[in-house]
Design a protein around this nucleic acid. Structure first.
Lengths: 67, 67
DNA sequence: TATTTTTTTATTGTTTTTCGATAAATTTTT
DNA sequence: AAAAATTTATCGAAAAACAATAAAAAAATA
């Protein structure tokens, strides 16, 4: 099972959805979908932008949980 | 910049492309594309299957390199 | 409580991309 | 040299990203 931890990283960085939205160039509505695990895939370009904006690694945003 | 490290994990597990292909249920041809960084996105279902097959985390397969 | 801000949900449409299936070419191994 | 594994290349179908937008809901704030 894949878990998205975007909310955790945003909290750690004290970054709002709107702020992140502007940094990565994706609308808040669409970022919200990703953040709340409603997305089913991600473009590497988006992952790249997120890692850059949050200064983190993909592993900080996406976690695999076995089950 | 996003870097795919699927080849590294496969080498560590001594797992061939064909073997991994069968485990994750994706044709060798398509896995090859992902492995060689020709893909532009990934489904979480695929990432999930890869992590399971290789017993690793997304961070072991995808790396962000700033530049 | 009322107001404002932020976030979430929903919808439509366009564009992109995955992935299967397949075949051929290339590389590696035996 | 032969076999096996990997890569490259197409085509098509299905899936999904993402924009744009609007509305609803939730959270923060006065």
């Amino acid at each position: 099972m894949i878990r998205i931890k975007l909310d955790v990283m945003m909290a750690e960085r004290k970054m709002s959805l709107n702020e992140l939205s502007e940094k990565v160039g994706i609308t808040p509505a669409n970022l919200s979908i990703l953040k709340n695990e409603k997305g089913k895939a991600i473009r590497f370009s988006t992952l790249d932008a997120l890692c850059k904006a949050l200064d983190c690694q993909p592993g900080d945003l996406i976690e695999y949980i076995e089950e």
